[in-house]
């Protein structure tokens, strides 16, 4: 396995855990072990704060950037019903991003700082959104597979140790279920439609299957932050466990559609009571994460343009408020 594009920050966190044995740090871990939620004003290790800021802001950015591949199809939805649904889903993703920015701000980073980090490339977002949406069937595959994988990742986070994050995740999880179901409904329509539609549906699963499996992150053995995050209960379940769970529930759904999962090594393992599956191309994952995916530039350019185009609105609203305050003074 090559990891050419892998980020090099893997030791930064362990180094910054200083004073690990201080009385505060011990009391903190005791609270975590007792499943007592950490709230914003509580004492926390700096590394815990930084890990959360990194993970939560990355999560928020993913929701925001995640609107782009689907927004691309709102104007071309095949019916008014589908258009209303897609619009509502994309609005939900905006909401998810905003809940998460708001929760992250309680850790002491400002929203502008987070947006700055996204635009400068120092903060990441989920690599899945760097793939293009080529046909309407991709709206089905994204809802079904991408939101499906997101749900699998997010449900355990409803019990994450940081209160504002856990509460935001509860709201988000309640809203996600419709996203997956509307996607699967599109897949049913396409898979049972004309031969051309069926080809589109198969092509969508062919393109989205592997990137969806990558959404769970690198294998546990190569996941640098996992052990500490599990100890802090920021993360509640390991990447590989979630990935296996996703495959196990999703393969029968693909079979129901009569579509082929693009993995020749996929087969049920009676002994393990799980599906065995083929090797994931992690090189591709690290390439896409580090900026070399098919749409990285397009996505970031679109976000930066939206931010810059909106500047006059932000400035005008501030100027108006300042004028009102000056008049009242």
């Amino acid at each position: 396995m090559t990891k050419s594009g892998k980020p090099k920050s893997t030791t930064a966190m362990t180094e910054s855990i200083t004073g690990k044995d201080s009385p505060e740090a011990k009391a903190f871990q005791k609270k975590i072990d007792a499943d007592i939620t950490i709230e914003p004003k509580d004492w926390m290790p700096e590394a815990y704060r930084h890990t959360l800021i990194r993970q939560m802001s990355q999560h928020a950015h993913s929701e925001i950037v995640g609107m782009l591949p689907e927004g691309n199809w709102i104007g071309r939805a095949p019916s008014l019903r589908r258009k209303m649904i897609l619009l509502a889903k994309v609005q939900d993703e905006a909401g998810h991003g905003l809940y998460l920015y708001s929760a992250t701000e309680t850790l002491g980073i400002s929203r502008d700082q987070m947006i700055e980090q996204l635009h400068s490339g120092s903060a990441k977002y989920s690599s899945i959104f760097n793939y293009p949406t080529l046909t309407w069937a991709d709206m089905g595959a994204i809802g079904w597979l991408v939101d499906g994988a997101a749900i699998m990742n997010q449900v355990p986070l409803c019990r994450t140790s940081f209160g504002p994050y856990a509460r935001a995740m509860v709201r988000i999880c309640k809203e996600e279920s419709f996203h997956q179901r509307q996607g699967y409904e599109i897949m049913i329509a396409m898979a049972h439609g004309s031969p051309a539609q069926k080809v589109m549906a198969q092509s969508a699963i062919d393109r989205w299957w592997w990137p969806s499996l990558m959404m769970f992150g690198p294998p546990d053995a190569d996941s640098p932050h996992s052990a500490q995050s599990l100890k802090w209960k920021i993360k509640r379940t390991s990447n590989d466990t979630l990935r296996q769970k996703f495959i196990d529930v999703t393969v029968p759904q693909a079979e129901f559609l009569g579509l082929e999962v693009p993995d020749p090594d996929l087969k049920w393992n009676k002994k393990r009571d799980h599906y065995d599956f083929g090797e994931i191309d992690w090189d591709e994952f690290y390439q896409v994460i580090s900026g070399n995916g098919p749409c990285n530039k397009e996505r970031l350019d679109a976000r930066i343009k939206a931010w810059e185009d909106g500047k006059w609105v932000r400035d005008a609203a501030l100027a108006y408020e300042q004028k009102k305050q000056a008049a009242a003074a």
């Binding site: 809940y99 708001s102 929203r111 709201r171 108006y320």
Partner: peptide
């Protein structure tokens, strides 16, 4: 207002009559 960033407001929702308003998150606004 001091900086360029819009100020933060905490948001509370009453889900139905008979229940108290409950904190849900925050928004930025002028």
């Amino acid at each position: 207002i001091t900086g360029k960033e819009w100020p933060l407001y905490e948001v509370f929702i009453r889900s139905k009559n008979g229940l108290a308003h409950k904190h849900v998150g925050s928004v930025h606004a002028t």
